[in-house]
Amino acid sequence: MAGQSVRRGMVALVTAATLLLSSIPATTFAALVSTDEIIAASAARGDRARVAAFLAREDVQAQMRALGVSPDEAHARVAALSDAEVSRIAGHIDTMPAGGDALGVIIGAAVLVFIVLLITDIAGLTKVFPWTRSVRE
């Protein structure tokens, strides 16, 4: 969004210049160097890494669409992350933790799993059941 407004500003500038001086064609389009590019440069990362991060973003967005998040929303979510943050999640969305619920998760758990989780709860390793008290409490 920031990029867009800057670009719009630059377009307006170029247009104004062209209107004023029709003899001079608005040739190359110039723009501000974005903050992200500065960050990427200061981390000594080349263009290739940026391109990879960009592709990763497309990848991330495609995965999110498959998960019921609209393209616009997926874009907005990814946009607020840094390249490094995005490249960490690209390709891992299906295995990434999704914090959902601590309420009523045990319904349907097999007896063995129930007993194991009960024991680990009491040992203070897990905290699945609200009513357990670990030996450390």
């Binding site: 999110m64 998960l67 019921g68 907005a76 607020a80 992350l81 943050e85 933790p97 999704a98 959902g100």
Partner: peptide
Amino acid sequence: SLVFTPGRDGSMPPDMIAAARREGRLAVR
């Protein structure tokens, strides 16, 4: 709508960070 992912029945960590920034907050890992 900013953090929940229906296909995963939950909210994924990067979306939590992104949502905080979309609200104009400084969200740092």
